[in-house]
Design a protein around this nucleic acid. Structure first.
Length: 611
DNA sequence: CCCGCGTGTCATTAG
DNA sequence: CTCTAATGACACGCG
């Protein structure tokens, strides 16, 4: 009982520690679930459930494919599959289950409409190599997004399919002209979408978590649920939009040209799978093409003051998307300004992704810190109007998830995107809400980081550093170097920028280090608890064994004496246990051995006593 | 005033 | 050799 209470107490203690750790880890972007075993287990179960569902779907698809293939026979001349004559009775029976399952899946399907799975079958025939994988990718997206859809929303819009007059018959009654059916099928936007995703999958194997952008938070955008995905479920990286994010620079529209898109695309994309690359780009980067063609590169060639650059941009820049949010563009900016000001240090930390940086040669490898902190001190004592210009600074703030820079490096148009995306992460409510939820050290942290931030910000401002601290710290090495090379900074500016970057990185590292340390402590405490339990268990076992041993010795002694009492010599007298002993030889036989030594000693004792 | 805690920073080391 | 992350040590501010 006491032990149990101990265990409970220690687990409660652990939970408290976990609370503390969690509150700290908000800075680092870690979430409570990381520490919550139950939650992780739930996640695991959910994941397994999803996998099972996925497996079922795949199985179904394969079954249907088999059924379809059974219906068709290979034309050995053309290599095409052609439908078998309907007279084949066994095949008919083989087909029947297919209809049943289809009816189960898509009750809206009419007989002359083609189900999505049938389309997938055709896809499988046309792209046999990657069939299973890519089919799973398509299904994956629906599976992943399914929990976020409204429940009455079907897995795909069958009505759209059945309304099309061009849709061929289902396989059972399919016309022999499969090729024509294909041409019609390929005009379906869903399939284009799917194919596009497949191609992208082959091109782009790396997926990034969706950046926490204000656009996503905007309820005007119909794929708002993705925001929750990014907030809580970044594990599900295999989501189409995240991949579109990587290819929004035009590769996708080229694969899915707008004229092939049905009017359905223009409607609100209610499913993730319904996103066309086009609509996605339109919503997020409506002027991407314009930007590209204009060749305007944001900061490039405007090193002295880039803040004023943004308002001069064309009216439909992604930055201006900011103002598309319902009437709160400026308010939101102000709000985030005030929220960011005290907390931006931690905000920077929270979004830092160590994986974003890649080892690279520094352009400024001379390590010149000629104008290091000591030289900046005089600027530190100028708490004046730094805040008044934060809005300008923040307008250039940076999205630190490493996604955009990576894209920009690949596409060779780094500047204008890096300079515009910054705003997005400042409005990310996750980091601020994280701090708001932190029950302790909030005020303290605010004040301190206010001081801290105004220092670096003031220094940066004093030296007219044309980018924000967040950018300086969070840019991957390559992009950072590229950014530096794009601006002819003087020695002092360079030194300050490198100092800021070093400090910021080290701050995050220190936070990580402390977090690990706390985790180690928690782990050691739990180890200690379990070891204590083990010790208790072993001690009780030991005492139990001692008791048993005593008991057995007692029994053995009793038995021994009993055996002796039953032994008789030739005269019928009993042997004395003090004069004889029973000994067992190696072959198992038992001998009655006189205790010679003892008797001898006894005799000697007698002899001695007589002397 | 002292103390403990959280945090940022610097110097050093390891990889 | 260089770069970055990790970490010990210290300083600072706050309650």
């Amino acid at each position: 009982m006491i032990m149990e209470m101990e265990v409970m107490g220690s687990s409660q203690q652990d939970m408290n520690l976990i609370d503390i750790l969690w509150n700290q880890d908000i800075d680092l972007g870690a979430r409570r679930e990381v520490f919550d075993y139950n939650h992780r287990q739930k996640e695991h179960e959910l994941q397994r459930q999803r996998e099972l569902d996925e497996e079922k779907r795949l199985h179904l698809v394969r079954e249907q494919e088999k059924a379809l293939l059974a219906q068709l026979q290979l034309d050995e001349e053309t290599g095409e599959y052609i439908p078998r004559p309907p007279s084949s009775a066994p095949l008919q029976s083989a087909v029947t289950p297919l209809e049943v399952t289809q009816n189960v899946n898509f009750t809206d399907d009419t007989d002359d409409a083609m189900s999505f799975d049938e389309c997938l079958q055709l896809l499988a025939e046309t792209f046999p190599v990657e069939e299973t994988e890519n089919t799973s990718v398509c299904l994956d997206t629906t599976a992943v997004s399914a929990p976020m859809m409204s429940p009455e929303q079907p897995a795909l819009p069958p009505a759209t399919l059945s309304q099309s007059p061009l849709i061929p018959q289902p396989p059972q009654r399919m016309s022999p002209d499969l090729e024509q059916a294909w041409m019609e099928l390929l005009s379906l936007p869903e399939l284009q979408q799917c194919l596009t995703m497949q191609m992208e999958d082959t091109l782009e194997t790396t997926t990034y978590p969706l950046p926490n952008s204000p656009e996503v938070q905007n309820p005007n955008y119909t794929f708002y649920p993705m925001a929750s995905l990014t907030e809580g479920e970044t594990n599900n990286v295999n989501v189409c939009p995240a991949e579109f994010m990587n290819t929004f620079d035009g590769s996708v529209p080229s694969m899915a040209p707008p004229d092939n898109l049905s009017p359905m695309e223009a409607k609100a994309p209610q499913l993730n799978t319904d996103f066309s690359a086009e609509s996605f780009c339109d919503i997020f980067y409506p002027n991407a093409i314009v930007e590209e063609s204009s060749g305007q590169h944001g900061l490039e060639g405007n090193e002295s003051n880039t803040m004023s650059d943004i308002p001069n941009k064309p009216p439909f820049t992604p930055v201006d998307l900011y103002s598309l949010s319902p009437g709160d563009a400026f308010d939101r900016g102000k709000q985030n300004l005030t929220a960011e000001l005290p907390d931006s240090d931690s905000g920077i930390s929270s979004n830092t992704s160590p994986n974003a940086s890649s080892p690279g040669k520094s352009v400024y490898g001379d390590g010149s810190f000629l104008y290091s902190d000591s030289d900046m001190e005089e600027m530190d004592h100028n708490p004046g109007s730094a805040e008044s210009d934060y809005s300008e600074m923040f307008s250039l703030d940076f999205q630190p998830d490493g996604l955009q820079p990576a894209v920009s490096v690949l596409t060779g148009q780094p500047q204008h995107q890096q300079e515009k995306n910054p705003k997005q992460h400042k409005t990310d409510p996750a980091e601020e809400s994280g701090h708001d939820n932190a029950p302790f050290t909030k005020d303290k942290q605010k004040k301190r980081s206010e001081v801290r931030l105004s220092r670096d910000e003031q220094r940066a401002k004093a030296l007219k550093i044309p980018f924000t601290v967040a950018m300086i710290i969070n840019l991957p090495v390559d992009d950072f170097n590229e950014l530096m090379s794009k601006h002819q900074l003087n020695e002092a500016q360079l030194a300050l920028v490198r100092d800021i970057r070093r400090r910021g990185k080290n701050k995050v590292a220190a936070q990580n280090c402390r977090k690990r340390k706390m985790e180690n402590i928690v782990g050691l405490e739990s180890d200690l608890d379990s070891l204590k339990e083990e010790k208790e268990r072993l001690l009780s076992e030991k005492s139990r064994n001692i008791t048993n041993m005593k008991e057995m010795k007692q029994q053995l002694n009793t038995l021994y004496l009993e055996v002796f009492s039953m032994l008789r010599d030739e005269k019928g007298n009993t042997y004395s246990p003090s004069e004889y002993s029973l000994q067992q030889s190696t072959d198992g036989s038992i001998f009655l051995v006189p205790r010679i030594k003892k008797t001898f000693i006894k005799r000697e004792d007698k002899h001695l006593s007589s002397l």
